[in-house]
C-alpha cells in the first residue's frame, strides 16, 4: 500500500467515552491482538464532553489525526451525549475543511463495550487514512488557535 509513506508514523489522539468505547478498547486489549500504536487515548466520561476545542487543540499540538469514539445510538450512559458529539463532529468537519485540514483526519464512530474488533478496525482505519495523507501542516502555523484560550 502506501509505498514511501510507511516510514511516517502519525500521531493521533483518541477521545473515548468511559462507558462504551473505553471498555471496547479494554476488550481489544484483553484479546491481545496487536494493532497500530499511533493512537493515544484520552478518556472522557461521555463523548458529549468532547468540546470541539479539544479536537482543535490536538491538531494544534501536533496531532495528525483525531478519533472520537462514542456509545452506539440509544446506548449512551448519559442518554444522548453521543448525539451531541455527533452533531458537533459534523459541524467541526466542515470547519476543518476551511483550515485545509482533510476531513479524513477526524473520525467519529460508535464502539460498544463488546466491540473490541470494531475498536481495532476504527484505529487501523484512521491510522491508514492519516498515513496516506501524510503529516499535517496547519496553514498559518500550529498556534493559530492558541490566543483564544
Amino acid at each position: 500500500m502506501n509505498n514511501g509513506m510507511n516510514s511516517f508514523e502519525p500521531k493521533i489522539v483518541g477521545f473515548l467515552c468511559n462507558w462504551c468505547s473505553y471498555a471496547g478498547a479494554d476488550k481489544a486489549g484483553v484479546a491481545q491482538t496487536p494493532y497500530p500504536s499511533n493512537v493515544n487515548i484520552i478518556k472522557v466520561m461521555c463523548s458529549g464532553r468532547v468540546d470541539p476545542q479539544f479536537v482543535l487543540k490536538a491538531f494544534a499540538s501536533g496531532a495528525d489525526g483525531v478519533l472520537i469514539l462514542a456509545c452506539h445510538p440509544g446506548d449512551c450512559h448519559y442518554k444522548e451525549g453521543n448525539y451531541k458529539a455527533l452533531q458537533r463532529y459534523k459541524i467541526l468537519s466542515r470547519l476543518l475543511k476551511q483550515f485545509d485540514i482533510a476531513e479524513q483526519r477526524l473520525r467519529f464512530d460508535y464502539v460498544s463495550a463488546g466491540e473490541g474488533e470494531k475498536f481495532v478496525e476504527a484505529i487501523t482505519s484512521i491510522v491508514d487514512n492519516v498515513k496516506s495523507l501524510g503529516p499535517l501542516s496547519i496553514k498559518g502555523g500550529n498556534n493559530i488557535w492558541e490566543q483564544q484560550h
Binding site: M45, C46, R49, V50, D51, P52, Y78, K84, R88
Partner: peptide, 18 residues
C-alpha cells in the same frame, strides 16, 4: 457527563476532574 461544558458558548462551565 460534561455535555453542558462542551456546549457552553463562552466556556464558563467546567466539569470537575475533566
Amino acid at each position: 457527563c460534561g455535555t453542558c461544558a462542551a456546549a457552553c458558548p463562552i466556556g464558563v462551565i467546567e466539569v470537575n476532574h475533566f
